[in-house]
């Protein structure tokens, strides 16, 4: 049983759903990452996704694109992020979220080993579907790393099955066709996609893309096992973190989002 499985088990016992939050590794500057992760954990985040910036993030909207670019402009490298995560020494599960080329460039095996050595529990590569993931899954398995895969509203039942069979930890359900980024409304048909996924797998299903408010978290958590908040957190960090001086803004926001998973 991985730490992600344990997390969902514990949440079930407390009748809560998971709050998954995303932060870009290296934005704010990498020296700040341990403190940010500790703040997120203290505020109640159940799982933290740490973004590995890539020069060509085709699945990301303007907020995370700009954040990744700031991180790259500061010269952050994948190993710097691994080191910062290790230094943070937190106990909630960490899942790296990146793109295939970052992992492939280091060799899937080496990448998975080093990601696991940093204390992470899983990883998700946004542009890698199970069709092309044989080598990645073998490498992740060897390193005891959960492999999270995406399902989308456009996925057929066959493809949902493919993703669920390849996934461990949880399945990441994309709320809409599109890229990451806050939106005014979560599409109504998201519950239909979740129903389809739930009829195929026993794995927990978390919903992301376009979720930024406690109301949206509550809505999503009424049908899924967790909600992922990404771009909104990235914006807050950019606007308020200020070397930790604004950590209370982050804490209060995450507490409010977490509260919405309890109702």
């Amino acid at each position: 049983m991985s730490r992600i499985d344990e997390t969902f088990e514990a949440l079930r016992k407390r009748s809560e759903k998971a709050l998954v939050v995303f932060v870009t590794g290296g934005d704010p500057p990498i020296e700040q990452l341990p403190a940010i992760l500790q703040t997120l954990e203290a505020a109640g985040a159940d799982i933290i996704e740490v973004g590995l910036p890539f020069s060509d993030p085709i699945a990301d909207g303007p907020t995370i694109q700009a954040s990744s670019q700031r991180a790259l402009d500061r010269g952050v490298r994948t190993q710097d992020i691994f080191d910062a995560v290790k230094a943070a020494d937190i106990s909630v599960p960490i899942v790296y979220m990146g793109y295939t080329n970052t992992a492939m460039r280091h060799g899937f095996r080496d990448f998975a080993q080093r990601a696991a050595a940093s204390g992470a529990t899983g990883a998700l590569l946004s542009d890698l579907t199970p069709d092309e993931a044989t080598e990645w899954r073998d490498a992740a398995k060897l390193a005891n790393l959960d492999t999270v895969f995406l399902v989308a509203p456009t996925s057929t039942d066959d493809r949902i099955k493919l993703a669920c069979d390849a996934a461990s930890g949880f399945v990441y359900c994309v709320s809409r066709t599109g890229v990451t980024g806050a939106a005014n409304a979560v599409p109504q048909d998201v519950s239909r996609t979740i129903d389809r996924v739930k009829s195929i797998t026993a794995l927990p299903v978390c919903v992301g893309f376009g979720i930024s408010t406690p109301e949206q978290v509550r809505m999503v958590c009424s049908v899924a096992d967790g909600a992922v908040v990404g771009s909104h957190i990235v914006s807050l960090l950019d606007q308020y973190w200020n070397d930790g001086a604004g950590s209370n803004v982050l804490r209060e926001e995450v507490e409010a989002l977490k509260a919405a998973t309890r109702s």
Partner: peptide, 11 residues
């Protein structure tokens, strides 16, 4: 091969 987000695979 195909290295794109899942959303595009059916298309």
């Amino acid at each position: 091969g195909r290295f794109v987000p899942e959303t595009l695979i059916p298309a």
